[in-house]
Design a protein around this nucleic acid. Structure first.
Length: 197
DNA sequence: CGGCTTTGACCCGCGC
DNA sequence: GCGCGGGTCAAAGCCG
């Protein structure tokens, strides 16, 4: 395992052309990071080792952001893959994964999508629990994990897994933001929790 | 009443 | 084989 699924991309490069592949999305160029202090864009490989969580993130600073690429993984690309009978689908086989380390007092960043919390778990090497969220839009199986940095609790690590197959509810207001991009980072939306948070 | 959070239990993969 | 750790499920309760 450990197929690398991300491509680094120079921040100074011109904006990428819209990619014909819907499983590919590009992020950073369209972000207005002034809303949050996003200190690091973190890349994750598929199949990272669990006992080295600090180094599984390929840290990048604002001068070297990252574009996630379509995963080159037959399991991912083969939608006919079915879970073994009776087994839960526990592996993240949703396409790609990207993590952001954000300096924020809030753990829940309003990224324009609607998330439903489905789990919370204490993790090793981190006194803060990790929260698991799933996109509440029907048919969209994008997940995200949110946890505070164990080394600096003023930072929040948000890990997105998968690609939205729908528009952000906010896209109507920010329709220049490419489809399926976690568009909230471009928004001036209030940091106050939405509805049930 | 519907949608959401909470939380303990369960499942699975992996290392020893 | 066993234990540990991460991820998910699902029932119960909360809230607008």
């Amino acid at each position: 395992m450990a197929d690398s699924i991300f491509l680094a991309r120079n921040f100074n490069e011109e904006n990428p052309k819209p990619n014909p592949n819907p499983n590919y999305t590009y992020l950073i160029d369209n972000f207005d990071l002034s809303d949050f202090e996003v200190s690091d864009y973190l890349l994750l490989d598929r199949g990272i080792s669990e006992d080295d969580s600090t180094s599984t993130y390929t840290g990048c600073d604002s001068t070297n952001p990252i574009i996630p690429a379509q995963i080159d993984d037959p399991v991912i690309n083969n939608s006919s893959e079915t879970p073994t009978s009776g087994a839960k689908k526990t592996k993240m086989d949703v396409g790609f994964r990207i993590a952001f380390r954000t300096k924020s007092e809030l753990e829940i960043l309003d990224d324009g999508f609607k998330w439903r919390k489905y789990g919370k778990k204490a993790v090793k090497n981190n006194p803060n629990p990790r929260n698991y969220y799933r996109c509440s839009t029907g048919g969209c199986n994008v997940k995200k994990k949110v946890e505070r940095d164990g080394n600096d609790s003023s930072y929040v690590i948000t890990t997105y897994e998968g690609v939205h197959n729908h528009e952000s509810p906010s896209v109507v207001y920010y329709n220049e933001i490419p489809l399926m991009v976690p568009s909230g980072w471009t928004l001036q939306a209030s940091h106050s929790h939405s509805s049930s948070f």
